[in-house]
Amino acid sequence: MSEQPILRLNHITMQFGGVVAVNDLSLEVQPGQIVALIGPNGAGKTTAFNCITGVYEPTNGLVSFCGEPMVRNHPQGKMSKSYQGENGTLYTSRLDLSDSEALAAIEAEQNPEAKAALQKSYDQALEERRALAREQDPLAFSDKVLSPTPDKITQLGIARTFQNIRLFSALSVFDNVLIAKHMRAKQNVFSATFRFNRAEENRMRQEAMALLEEQGLAHLKDEVAGSLPYGLQRRLEIARALATQPKLLLLDEPAAGMNPQETQELTDFIRQIRKEYGLSILMIEHHMDLVMQISEHIYVLDFGKLIAQGTPTEIQNNPRVIEAYLGVADDAEN
């Protein structure tokens, strides 16, 4: 079986106004792999997650899931003028500085014809570049924009947890998990209201209950989710994500605020759910113990850019990574 990556990011760029939060990020997650995305605070890791899960529409790039393009965009309209990402020249007509200076000069001379001619040649050049890019990577540079909403992406089989826990805190633990079953329920609003399909409802409840039992949360099922201790809330959030029956699980700082012992438990837990549910996992994490122990591949982001990737050992010895985390040696001396 050829190794089709379960998740692939091609040239993902996310730009907010003038700030490029994620700059030309490409990464892959192979089936069954645990991949970590690390980097200093503000490196753009959560933004990358939001691009994958449809919360943001990336400014440029392609996300493909199980070999199928899922999210795709390239800068258009107004964006193509202000686009600043790594491969920005593909979309902006300002090819280089001297030309734009020339354009300014012509503008100053107020010669509309020359200006129009130059503009035309720029547009032509741009079109050629785009055509070339499309030829090179037809999937990534298709003109067709794909921007599914988060719920569509969850239905495709990507589940996520959040950096600051987002449970349905006034609802019971059981309901939290049960809600995740709603999207796959085979009933419409009438049959659900008038209980035409009790078997379906019972199936949902049984599945949710089974999941809670597997996760060791069954005894808490009637508790209000918001009243659980922090560690259990994290656990419930993962259980809830698992209830959507994902192929890929995105964990956003699952060990945040945990002590070493809890982190160790979490490490075992993540390994265990990967095995039990046949998942691939992409996670953002700051606890290096955890990251180095369980991930098979690590991507390092800094200021939105990918600065290194490789196995844990490679990353540990990578000078650029050390630099990003600790600062340049010269700076330290000053």
Binding site: L171, I179, H182
Partner: peptide
Amino acid sequence: SSYGRAFKAIREDEIAAEAMGINL
């Protein structure tokens, strides 16, 4: 019903509800 739970999920947290596959 299941739809009622989905409504409550939207009330509690729209973003989390969407992440649970509920079409807002």
